[in-house]
Amino acid sequence: MRQRRRSRLIAIAFALPALALNLLVIAGPAVSSIVYSFTDWNGITSPEFVGLANWSRLIADGAFWNAIGNNFVYLLLFLTVPLAMGLLGAFMLARIRRGAALFRVVYFIPYLLVSVITAQIWRNILDPEFGLAAALHGIGIHWLDGVYFFADKRFALYSVAFVDNWHFWGFLVVLFLAAMQGIDSAQYEAARIDGANAWHEFRHVVLPGIRPTLTFALTIIAIGSMLVYDYPFILTQGGPAGSTDVASLLVNRTAFLARDAGYASAIALALSVLSAIFLVLFGFLRRREES
């Protein structure tokens, strides 16, 4: 009996540092952020309870809806372009023998780059004077003359999402390829005997075969799009005229520049609830597939 209690104490002693750290950095602040969302707080002096004032302010706040709207545009772009590129790359890669390892390395390199460097690459290429536009101008093509991809509010959000996509899609290729290689080869044989062409094979063998991985990819894309921060922060700081403002930028601006930490907590909480909805939705999808 004493032996048992001793072994329990040792086990708790091993687990305690990690749990304490978690409480300090993540769980504690997460819970207090719920409390702060009902207060007026500048971060330093003691918070003042204001009931639902932050929430009614949020509902009427044009800046919040603008940012969330941009998050959803981001989500739509990411649910289509990189997903299609990832599936296409992986499907083609699964069909070849020679050079597959090389292609896989090349596709993965953008994903390795630090976000500030990825941004620098595309700032250079999309610069009207020192990039693609100037190169085309040199050979007499003037399509891109005077196009400011990051400074024109018609293009800025799409340009930022494009850069993020360039960084991200190779990860999806590697993820999907691993899943496709797990499909039983007998299923391909059966499809070929039935005279399936490449599209049929993709539609009826590959897509059903990688469904769990596809759901996982949709989950990380949805959550990543709701919480995106790096590329809008680096490339445009949310501008011009709020056209690339996203919720994470708004939270940080409200909390750390305007020192309106109570209201920032409310925005952050709304954002968290939104991404939790996606998490539950895709979790539900996955469970339905498993059963």
Binding site: P29, A30, Y36, L227, A255, S272
Partner: peptide
């Protein structure tokens, strides 16, 4: 699965 924004402000 907790988003960073949930705890970064406090």
């Amino acid at each position: 699965s907790l988003p960073v924004q949930m705890f970064i402000v406090p």
